[in-house]
Design a protein around this nucleic acid. Structure first.
Length: 456
DNA sequence: CAACAAAGCGCG
DNA sequence: AAAGCGCGCTTTGTTG
């Protein structure tokens, strides 16, 4: 599969992604201006003066407003703001999490500037550096670099193009356009494939039911438990938080203390409410949970705190709800210790120095990607067989990116959908759950940003 | 100047 | 006992 995959991905490299170079140049200029403007405000506006003066006092001509190490010293040493601890080497933590609750205009501007600088240098700058004279990008796909036997992409990396922050996405994604004014950027995405594949390994009956029975909803149920909600009180946002701040972290080996913290912070940051409009802080207070509680691992959780509550949620999660999954992890790890390796269902052997979490996470991270890779190979064969003009232009772990030629959308999406949901399952009988695919398509000649849900 | 480590941040 | 997994890329700051 990797031999065929290498050939297929080299074709994807050759195809390349069309770049809107005019937009790129324009947006770089615009961002440079915005970044300079922000930097100016940090130095000269009245509301920022106190912080900037303190900074100058400490660093003089060495003042660098892009240095997070300097920022940490200024805020947490000089201005006595309460920090969020230090890194391993003893410097103040100064990432987004440590800064975003500080109510200073200077810090708000700093965070905004850092965000724009990231967009400017990593993304727009990276694209500009790599785009060829025809306006095409040809990123490099690797199958030999990743410990889990996933893929990686470089020069530039097109597997981490911004999407979650809608503003940054709206700056970067318009760069990626169809190669023809009548063509369409199209993306097929396996939904929840890592969870599905993990179900194939651990065969936890509860997890399999969640996957197979569409009337059930794991993330909704965990939102109910985490925030003590009734079914009719769960909002989309609460479900989102349960999914991304509890379920996935727990599946990958996180623990209740850090989950409790991020779920709790999310209430204010995302202004979480019940469906009826009551703030979740207030809601929890009515249920007897009045504060977060200590995040110190050595302090025993106190009843009436959110930390204590999450401890019980975690216990039920692993000991009652997903007990079979829990036991599978124990068995898989012990088998690895005994043999020194494990084999994935897709035919890969992982050995060497692995810790417990890596050992129980690698098999489905790799296997999930192999599902996508197998489909990519097949889709490309079909495109060639039917002499279609649609081309594959990328792959993002569980999704397939294409530039669909005029008049081929219906055929292409049918082919891709069938391969991903039907043929794949026939090829690998270990896939004992349904595979589901979301398809998104951009209007003719428009960019990757503008993809929207497509229904046959 | 190059090489490297650390910290940070984007994605699945 | 430790306290999410996997990547690539950038800037800062140090070292030789």
């Amino acid at each position: 599969m990797f031999h065929e995959g290498t050939l297929a991905l080299s074709q994807v490299e050759h195809n390349g992604m069309r770049i809107d170079t005019k937009y790129l140049g324009r947006t770089i200029k615009k961002l440079d201006k915005k970044i300079a403007q922000l930097s100016n405000e940090m130095k000269e506006s009245a509301e920022c003066r106190r912080v900037y003066k303190t900074w100058r006092k400490r660093y003089g001509v060495k003042t660098n407003l892009g240095s997070h190490e300097q920022l940490g010293r200024v805020l947490f040493d000089d201005l006595k703001i309460k920090g969020k601890g230090t890194t391993k080497s003893g410097r103040w933590k100064s990432d987004k999490d440590a800064l975003e609750d500080i109510d200073l205009p200077f810090v708000k501007k700093y965070l905004e500037a850092e965000k724009l600088k990231k967009a400017r240098s990593t993304y727009l700058g990276g694209i500009l550096r790599e785009v060829d004279s025809n306006g095409f990008l040809h990123p490099v796909f690797n199958l030999h670099t990743v410990a889990t036997y996933r893929s990686s992409v470089s020069d530039p990396n097109t597997q981490n193009i911004p999407i979650r922050d809608t503003y940054v996405a709206s700056l970067v994604r318009p760069c990626f356009i169809s190669r023809s004014p009548s063509g369409q950027i199209c993306e097929h995405d396996f939904s929840g494939i890592e969870v599905r594949v993990s179900g194939c390994y651990n065969k936890d009956p509860q997890l399999l039911t969640y996957i197979r029975d569409k009337t059930t909803d794991m993330h909704r149920d965990m939102a109910m438990e985490c925030y003590l909600l009734e079914l009719n009180q769960v909002t989309k946002e609460a479900r989102y938080c349960a999914k991304n701040k509890f379920v996935f972290p727990e599946f990958y080996g996180d623990w209740y203390l850090s989950c409790a913290n991020s779920l709790w912070m999310a209430i204010d940051r995302m202004q979480l409410k019940t469906a009826q409009g009551v703030s979740l802080k207030e809601h929890l207070r009515r249920k007897g949970i009045k504060r977060l509680g200590s995040l110190d691992p050595d302090v025993r959780p106190v009843p009436g705190t959110f930390v204590h509550h999450l401890q019980t949620v975690e216990k039920r999660f692993w000991e009652d709800r997903f007990a079979v999954y829990s036991q599978w992890k124990v068995d898989w790890w012990e088998a690895f210790l005994k043999k020194g390796y494990f084999d994935t269902y897709t035919g890969f052997r992982c050995g060497g120095l692995l810790d417990r979490k890596q050992c129980v996470n690698y098999p489905f991270q790799g296997s999930a990607f192999h599902c996508l890779l197998w489909c990519l190979i097949r889709v490309q064969k079909m495109l060639r067989k039917y002499r279609m003009r649609t081309v594959l232009i990328g792959q993002i772990h569980d999704s397939l990116l294409s530039d669909v030629a005029k008049g081929e959308l219906k055929d292409y999406t049918e082919i891709a959908h069938k391969i991903m949901t039907v043929d794949l399952k026939k090829h690998w009988r270990w896939i004992i759950v349904p595979m589901e695919v979301d398809c998104e398509v951009a209007p003719c000649g428009r960019s990757w940003l503008e993809k929207e849900k497509y229904n046959g």
